[in-house]
Design a protein around this nucleic acid. Structure first.
Lengths: 151, 151, 151, 151
DNA sequence: TTTT
DNA sequence: TTTT
């Protein structure tokens, strides 16, 4: 019906870029969003919120965003679930971004020089794949439907 | 920094009302939010989003909301984690509501007659408690800090 | 960049439906949104917010919404200006809706029976037209560009 | 009921800071927010949205924000009206900010050195005052209720 | 009356 | 584990 999210925070790492079987780009990153109020111990806590971006925006994020950069994300909350390799149902909540604004900051910060996109695939098997693909690592399209999220 | 969510959906069950050790009310429920677009199979999918409400609003939700009722929720995304009883770190994402609007609908729908609040505690131990309390079931305050979420 | 609005309120009147020169539907209505806090006199004030909807959604609003009905509106704030017939620049702020949800309530309330759309054109000339059209009244398309708002 | 706005844009000028009769600070500025899509002439249009901030946040805005700076604003839409000095009712729409985030950019940009707050009062009488105060110019509190907006 |  |  109505499902709207707006976040402002910093990337905890460079985005990861992948491609679905039929060539759709999808980028993922985590946004660290500080809470506005401190807790009872007087500490400022942070929510680490997983973000998913599709298509052209995914590629732009991979090119222009990096660890430590500030970004504003507008999108919707998505809750999906899958069966893990122990046969247990796992629930994943993430924000599907429809609009990402690149703000300043971050390391190496010659504001928005282009980065070399980081393709994910790092030896550690991605166990929450709906369809595990051993070739995911070498930048070949992964064998899942466009509906699924490849991470 | 900035973390804003607005949702419109229906409760999948009656809210559960609890009290922290020092008497703060907390209600929880799941909001079923239909997606605006259908998937590739032409089906309309639904996101089931866990909601947490505190204090006075919690008690109002327990009184006036029920299974099937429509509600608008405004709040923020919170990601917390705890170690479960198998020693594994579990991540929980939920929306902490700051404003809940009661809309029509639902069963027995003599619009907003008061309901008998449903206290949770149903025999099945609540395993994601930070601090398990055997008395949670009989409506006595539960023994955890106000910071923690009792579910 | 980022311009997001979510409102929940009631229509002060039936929506007005018009068509631009090239046949695009546009509906307008005012949403009465109560403030959450009362003022210093203990009264609850209300903001009356002008809403604009385009295309298919405009026609659905004209059919299914009416005076007193509750609606949730998601969109963006738009500030436009035009020169009035006294040669003075007038500023208009309105919410351009991208998503309107029909909620219950309202008069005659046999929930969402279809209404006869109300075409605007009531004898009183609409002086904030960019391009005044004497035929606007008899439901013929109005002679303005799609960019402009016909009211 | 529910009235939520999130904006990201740049200040068109330094904020103006004033004080109500009983000492409450209020800052005002205009946020230039680019539209995401270009119009039929291929130009990117901009909405100029008036912002009001109260109390402590007002003083922080006056100190840390300036012309050209980027800011994220979270708040609610307010529509008020008053009778102008020609006896005509004038409607004013503005965003009452509850949370302002200072982002980079702007002139002189030694990021967030403190600025000398700009008090409004520039010789031109502020004609949309509900209660005109000839002393508003010399930084003395203005003689209106806290409920009213002094600009 | 507008910002980059 | 889900609502209409």
């Amino acid at each position: 019906m109505l499902n709207r999210v707006v976040l402002l925070g910093r990337l905890t790492k460079d985005p990861e870029l992948r491609y679905t079987q039929n060539g759709t780009a999808v980028a993922t990153f985590t946004l660290a969003v500080d809470r506005r109020v401190t807790n009872q111990q007087g500490e400022r806590e942070t929510d680490f919120i997983p973000i998913v971006v599709w298509s052209k925006q995914a590629e732009l994020c991979a090119q222009y965003l990096g660890k430590g950069r500030q970004a504003a994300v507008e999108g919707r909350i998505q809750v999906r679930n899958y069966e893990n390799n122990e046969g247990r149902r796992v629930y994943v909540t993430e924000v599907v971004a429809e609009n990402v604004q690149f703000l300043g900051g971050g390391e190496g910060s010659g504001d928005f020089e282009q980065r070399t996109p980081v393709f994910s695939g790092d030896g550690k098997p991605s166990r929450n794949f709906q369809n595990d693909n051993p070739f995911a690592d070498d930048q070949r399209p992964i064998d899942i439907s466009d509906d699924d999220l490849p991470f």
